[in-house]
């Protein structure tokens, strides 16, 4: 900011606000990490002993391992399908002008605005009527609906940074639409596709409401956490939490890094001499 523009309040006020917000955001995450290594059953400030016994307990728990297997299956499939759907829709929106384009765009971005309870309820009703509720497949199908808008948005924003002439120029030089897509569009969109896969994976890995409603006996990790929340104090939740945080945070940061680096290299190309 320029020298002549003074702030209404001194800088430390704003920075204190910034710190406070980050404390609120990250204290719960850090506390899970700290307590996961505490030997005490009841989490409190005076931690007596360091221990990894809760980790051992989690990894010996067949119920948790089963849930983990479910979670990974679901998240992987969701990431695959949601990224494919999201990229296809983003590409169609970028490349073509067609009737009802805005409607499709609105439809694609709608699911996140529907309250997750309502969506879960509707999904449960729908899947029980077609006899699919209580299956891993139904969770995947529903998670794809929730995750695709993120994939679509990420890919669409990245495509926006590419002049549409690149692709037509390739066709003008003899490339078929398929070749132009493969040789010109995909290399450009690759970071976004990677980021979209990571984010959709994280979204699915974390989603609890739909998985809880629709999954029936098939539990995912968040659903076991939800069930534990209702019961007694259970230190293993800190372990699961720490692992979940480690997993999703690294996914999200990896995705952000991918996007950030691709945007930077894009900018460098724009300011060619």
């Amino acid at each position: 900011m320029n020298r002549h523009l003074k702030h209404a309040l001194p800088a430390w006020v704003w920075f204190t606000g910034l710190m406070l917000v980050f404390v609120i955001l990250y204290a719960p995450i850090l506390s899970a990490l700290v307590f996961s290594f505490s030997a005490d059953r009841f989490p409190s400030l005076d931690i007596t002993r360091f221990s990894t016994k809760w980790y051992a307990q989690v990894f010996a728990d067949a119920r948790v391992l089963e849930a983990l297997k479910n979670s990974l299956t679901i998240a992987l499939s969701t990431a695959l399908v949601a990224t494919t759907l999201g990229f296809a829709a983003a590409y169609a929106d970028f490349r073509f002008r067609f009737f009802g384009q805005r409607m499709v765009l609105a439809l694609a971005l709608l699911p996140p605005t529907v309250p997750i309870v309502v969506l879960s309820l509707a999904m449960l009703a729908f899947f029980s009527r077609i006899g699919l509720s209580g299956t891993v497949g139904s969770i995947i199908v529903a998670h794809v609906v929730v995750a695709t808008p993120f994939a679509m948005a990420i890919c669409r924003l990245r495509l926006e940074q590419m002049p549409p002439e690149y692709e037509t120029a390739a066709q003008n030089l003899g490339a078929t639409p398929g070749q132009a897509l493969r040789l010109i569009v995909l290399p450009h969109a690759a970071p976004a596709i990677g980021a979209a896969a990571l984010i959709t994976f994280a979204v699915s890995l974390d989603e609890y409401a739909i998985a809880w409603f629709v999954g029936g006996l098939e539990q995912t990790v968040p659903v076991t956490v939800l069930n534990t929340l209702q019961g007694q104090v259970d230190p293993t939740i800190h372990v699961i939490g720490t692992l979940a945080f480690a997993a999703t945070l690294s996914l999200v940061f990896a995705a952000q890094l991918l996007l950030l680096r691709s945007t930077k290299s894009h900018k460098n190309k724009e300011v060619s001499p």
């Binding site: 690149y166 066709q171 003008n172």
Partner: peptide
């Protein structure tokens, strides 16, 4: 004739050189 079979190459206003 589709674009890619035309053999009428175009020099673009923004050149559209492939950046990769």
């Amino acid at each position: 004739l589709p674009v890619w079979q035309r053999e009428t190459p175009l020099v673009w206003q923004n050149l559209a050189l492939f950046p990769y």
